[in-house]
Amino acid sequence: MAEIIQEEKGKGGKHRGKKHPPHIDMTPMVDLMCLLIIFFMLTSAMAKAKVMEITLPEKLKDPNAEPPKISASRTLNIILGPDNKIYWYPGTVKPEDYNNLPPLTETDFSAKGIRQLLLERNIALSRKIEEFKNEVLQGKIVLNPDSVQSGIRKLKKDDDTGPIVLIKAYKDSNYGNFVDILDEMNICGVAHYMLVDITWYENKMVEAAAGITPAPDASKK
């Protein structure tokens, strides 16, 4: 008995020595870390900016070269106007119509505006893309994300009913409108769209529609 008690006492003594390890004060370290965290939060940009790709047609080197012909029935001209407005007209203007220009329809960037118009005209292709995406989501077709993108690209390439959109910008439009309209093309899955220089008669049409008196030095080449 006595021996056991002694042993216990000895153990207890050891424990007492371990009970008080050298205590480090962490407070300055916490202060420092707070400062570092605040610094990083303020100087860093959380989300990386995204990019939207656009490929413009190569400039025709030969001024006499004919631009590629496109079917007038599928053509949809979208003109970015002043004050975030969009004007559009279908088809093309032939030289004999210069004195009798077709009227422009005004619309805007809302879901009921330009998006409705584009989806109505692009319904076949949009539906195909939607179905394709759904099938991938439901697991009917097993594909990796890259193949999904190329699958959509192929659907767009094969499309021959959707509109061919010519985007033109009046001189008072801004860069935001330009990005918005390209974004609308991506949202609606329009297969064929391109940026085209505005012509003098389209300038006139916009000025008539928006009620702007043309500047004396209008770009009438």
Binding site: K50, M52, I54, T55, L119, S126, E130, D183
Partner: peptide, 17 residues
């Protein structure tokens, strides 16, 4: 240079066919 990357911020958009 015919290919451009336009730097934009992300915004979701939904369409209802």
């Amino acid at each position: 240079m015919n290919k451009f990357n336009l730097i934009t911020s992300l915004e979701a958009a939904k369409i209802n066919l």
